[in-house]
């Protein structure tokens, strides 16, 4: 009984609040397309940051973010209000990033062996390299399935529940992946332990 009341308390204010995502979406569905601009303004930086962190490439951020919001625009009329808008938005963002990475993987098959050797041969120089740069390179070396939950948690501050919905897996898996990501990161950064840790 108590739980039911709590649920009502949580859900009702969301619908009634005119500024929240759900009310903006409802207005959009009702024909007020200007609300979509508000949604962009509200979430664009998070989306752009997730793309940047995932792909580690400045130049791609706006292109992929644009694709994300276009997809949202096309499908918003069918939004079912079953989960938070941000969860849906981040899922689209991560999927777009994954699509891009998949395309790159296919393309890399056709790249010369020499190029890939050069990429693999990267080794940061501690004397000159920026500390943040070292950490970024270390994060880049993490596998995709560990890197994304870690960044969504530590940079974007999403909850385990939100991450689970965004990457479409169980909360327990998210917990395990973040732990493994931290362990791996610590191992990668071991040579710079004194400077960093």
């Amino acid at each position: 009984m108590k739980n039911k009341k709590k649920k009502l308390e949580l859900t009702q204010p969301q619908i009634l609040n005119l500024d929240d995502d759900f009310s903006l979406i409802k207005r959009f569905i009702d024909g007020d397309e200007s609300t979509f601009n508000t949604l962009i303004l509200r979430h664009k930086e998070k989306v752009r940051n997730i793309i940047y962190m995932t792909l580690n490439n400045h130049e791609l951020v706006d292109d992929i973010a644009q694709e994300v919001f276009l997809t949202v625009y096309k499908n918003l009329m069918r939004f079912r209000f079953e989960s938070q808008f941000t969860t849906w938005l981040y899922r689209i963002t991560i999927n777009k990033c994954k699509d891009y990475l998949r395309k790159m993987k296919i393309r890399s098959i056709f790249q010369s062996f020499k190029d890939s050797e050069e990429e693999l041969g990267y080794s940061p120089s501690t004397d000159e390299a920026d500390v943040s740069e070292i950490v970024r390179e270390a994060i880049k070396k993490l596998p995709e399935k560990l890197r994304i939950p870690l960044l969504l948690k530590d940079i974007e501050g999403l909850s385990y529940q939100e991450i689970a919905e965004s990457v479409q897996c169980e909360i327990g898996t998210v917990k395990s992946r973040i732990f493994r990501a931290r362990e791996s990161l610590k191992n990668i950064l071991k040579p710079f332990e004194k400077e960093l840790l």
Binding site: I40, R48, I51, S132, V135, I139, D154, I155, L197
Partner: peptide, 23 residues
Amino acid sequence: KVKRITSSSVKIVKENPFFETRV
């Protein structure tokens, strides 16, 4: 420590004020 350095190391991408116009 790992959480701290992860949070602090990642550059936040520069804001793009014209992004919504572009979309």
